[in-house]
Structures are given as C-alpha cells and as structure tokens.
Amino acid sequence: MATNNLGPVLSAFERRPESLISLLQAVQESLGYLPPDALGTVARHARVPRSRVYGVASFYSQFRFNPVGRQRVAVCRGTACHVGGARFILEQLERTLGIPEGQTTEDMEYSLETVACIGCCGLAPCISVNDEVSAKLTPKKVRKQFKQARK
C-alpha cells in the first residue's frame, strides 16, 4: 500500500493527539514500517506537529523506520532465556541468516531482532517468527530450522 492511500487506515481513529500511538501502529501494520512521508500524514491527521510524531515514533521500540523482511525473527532476551543461553541462539541465527541483529537479508526474506521478553519463560529459550513462538530451543535446533529455509 502506498503512503498516499492511508486514508481508510487513518479514518478509523479520532483526529486527536491521543490517537497518535494507535495511528502509528495502524500505519506500520499496513505498510510494514514508517516511511518519512507517512509521519507527515499521521501528523496532519492527529493535528500535531511532525516533530512530535517523530518524537513519539522514535521513543518506542515497536516502531521502525526501515522496511523489514517477510519473516521477522525475534530472539527473546528475557531473564529466563538469558539464563537458558539466549545469546548462543542469537549468535547462531546471525551466522545462519548471515545478518547481524537489527538487519534484514538482501532478499528481504528475514529480519533479525531481539525482543525484551515474549513471556514464554517457562519454556525458555524461545524466539518468535512473525509472532509465532518456538520454545525450548538450542543453537542446533535453530540452525536446522533456518538452514532448510535458507536453501
């Protein structure tokens, strides 16, 4: 969807400053990220300065200013996962996908990120791929899971 077609997405929300975060969430949901001109569109809709939109969007970790891969791989860095060896899972994914944390593969298939806590601590360590959680992982398991996908 192009930025200039955001009308229907925005119209679900009241034209007030307090709608700002919900507006940004809806725009990101439909475009996958927040391109610069979308911030201006949101600013006009919420009736706030563009600087405030950028201020809010850059404050929260959920918002992205760059496109992401079709599969968003998020490694949980919660406490239970940390104790269970989350850093080895992250490093294995960096090697298998060939990208460092925070980057997207050139073919736009995978993005690799970390998340504060998925809340699946009883089955740590875990990751989520497009919000679907896989648990009780080992570097070996993630290598297998993504090696096949990379071929």
Binding site: R16, E18, I21, L24, A46, Y60, S61, Q62, A116
Partner: peptide
C-alpha cells in the same frame, strides 16, 4: 490500548503519558 514497547511505561505516570499519546516518560 496497545503499548508500543517501552519498559518504563510500567511506571504509572509514564503509562499515563503513553495513554495520552505522548512519549512514555
């Protein structure tokens, strides 16, 4: 209201700021 990923928003005044559509400080 859906949060947007900021631990500090668990603090009540930050949470309220976020509910009002501002940076959660």
């Amino acid at each position: 209201k859906e949060g947007a990923g900021a631990f500090v928003c668990g603090e009540e005044t930050a949470l309220i700021a976020s509910l009002e559509g501002r940076r959660g400080m």
